[in-house]
């Protein structure tokens, strides 16, 4: 399968990329592991691709103050194998290591995954559970959004057409915070049929986020409110997950019915909370 024709420009800086994007029907290219398949299927036919993969300032992992800052073009593999990530926010390494397969992790990037906002992708649940901030830059300047405000629905985000994600800022959790990412893999695509990310701070505050279940990744505030501050006993956990994904627009497709997805979500929420106990 061959994509339709397009022009290709490699941007050398964020500023240059934004200028190229202002110019009509152009699309950002990062790792290409969602965009190239879409171009091949001609689901997407932009006039120009602006390749940002080699802009040095967009790549890398560092600690800045109380935050772990990851550049948008950092690959899943770089995150999964990073000692800094493992030390400060190991759930990100765990989740990134569960994406697709080795070759996909070698090319795909954090920023690309967030911009694509596939409801079955792993990153959205991970940035939601860790209360991350997404930093965007466009012709109007820079803005920083809470992960929860960045995702706006099925494959949609708050990104404007001339904006790029530059970095993701993750608050470093308090010492003693526990976390886990539990994924039920759709065996053909390797995306999450259900992905449950959970974090519990020493104070007992607990956050739970899902991918794969609804039309967009979401924080399950029902579970969070029911279990935060309570001991993680089997009884409390069972009670907390009884209304998993309540009020969400649950997906249904030929891989999993709505009923089966909700069932799996409950099972995986339970496993996640047990793992934090």
């Amino acid at each position: 399968m061959i994509p339709a024709s397009f022009e290709y420009k490699r941007a050398r800086s964020v500023k240059a990329a934004i200028e190229l994007l202002a110019d009509g029907n152009a699309k950002v290219l990062s790792g290409g592991h969602s965009l190239v398949p879409a171009l091949k299927l001609r689901l997407n036919q932009p006039e120009m691709l602006v390749d940002i993969a080699r802009i040095a300032s967009l790549k890398g992992i560092k600690v800045s103050g109380k935050e772990l800052v990851i550049g948008s073009t950092t690959t899943h593999q770089e995150i999964a194998s990073s000692d800094i990530v493992k030390e400060h926010l190991s759930i990100l390494a765990e989740g990134a290591g569960a994406i697709g397969d080795v070759q996909v992790r070698n090319k795909g990037t954090l920023g690309g995954s967030l911009a694509h906002a596939d409801p079955s992708a792993d990153w959205p649940a991970l940035v939601l559970v860790s209360n991350a901030k997404v930093v965007l830059e466009g012709s109007g300047g820079e803005r920083t959004l809470n992960a929860a405000d960045f995702f706006t629905g099925f494959f949609s985000t708050a990104l404007a057409s001339d904006e790029i994600i530059t970095e993701i800022r993750f608050p470093i959790p308090a010492k003693g915070t526990k976390s886990t990412y539990q994924k039920f893999v759709q065996p053909a695509s390797r995306f999450a049929l259900v992905g449950c990310a959970a974090m519990r701070e020493p104070s007992g505050e607990t956050r739970v986020a899902f991918s794969g279940v609804a039309d967009a990744a979401f924080r399950d505030t029902g579970i969070e409110n029911a279990i935060s501050g309570k001991t993680l006993t089997a009884e409390n956990i069972n009670h907390a997950v009884s209304d998993t994904a309540k009020g969400q627009d649950i997906m249904s497709d030929h891989y999993a019915s709505e009923e089966y997805r909700v069932h799996l979500a409950k099972v995986f929420a339970k496993r996640a909370l047990m793992a934090l106990a």
Binding site: Y8, L29, G32, H33, V36, D51, A53, Q103, V104, K107
Partner: peptide, 18 residues
């Protein structure tokens, strides 16, 4: 699968320009 700068990648999912 081939190696690009020493790492495995699926060459059907990369553009030659990349």
């Amino acid at each position: 699968t081939i190696h690009v700068d020493g790492i495995a990648a699926k060459s059907c999912t990369m553009l030659a320009v990349q």
